[in-house]
């Protein structure tokens, strides 16, 4: 099975591994690194549960080659809360009860984090446009919009 050497940084930690070319980024972080916060659901890039950031950009880890993070930086949900301190996005999702089963939550948190990096004070419409590719089957979305607005007021991705 074809393989390549991959040298990457995951949540600030350098990782060097030889990986099968067919391995997805989701399987890489989940199975090889034990970072199971990233979830796989639709497998077709429409649900967003597997959203992680590669060099700051949101990608669908289920449909992204692990080898393509060679030389790049990966941020998964486990890399957010530094030393146990929740980020404003995570804090707002807790405070607004913007989750139920929680399976979509890491993807939403990552997507919202990327949004607030680009646009620290988004309108409700911008939030909806940005998160239209993340599905949640439990909440009915209103608490999620509320949480992103709250995180934005709380200073977005920074303190």
């Amino acid at each position: 099975m074809p393989e390549l050497d991959v040298s990457t940084t995951v949540n600030g930690r350098p990782v060097e591994m030889r990986l099968p070319t067919r391995l997805t980024l989701a399987d890489f972080v989940r199975d090889r690194l034990g970072l199971t916060g990233t979830k796989v659901s639709c497998g077709m890039q429409v649900c967003g549960a597997c959203t992680v950031l590669v060099d700051g950009d949101p990608v669908s880890a289920c449909s992204y080659l692990a080898c393509d993070v060679d030389g790049r930086e990966v941020l998964t949900v486990e890399g957010l809360a530094d030393g146990g301190e929740l980020t404003p996005v995570q804090r707002a999702f807790v405070d607004c009860s913007a989750l139920q089963c929680g399976f979509c939550t890491p993807g939403f948190v990552m997507a919202a984090t990327a949004l607030l990096r680009d646009e620290p004070h988004p309108t409700e419409e911008q939030i909806a446009h940005h998160l239209d590719g993340n599905l949640c089957r439990c909440t009915g979305y209103l608490p999620i919009v509320e949480a992103v607005l709250k995180a934005s007021r709380a200073g977005g991705i920074d303190e």
Partner: peptide, 9 residues
């Protein structure tokens, strides 16, 4: 369960 769910734990 909220903190565990927002941190991926």
């Amino acid at each position: 369960d909220a903190v565990a769910k927002v941190t991926g734990a």
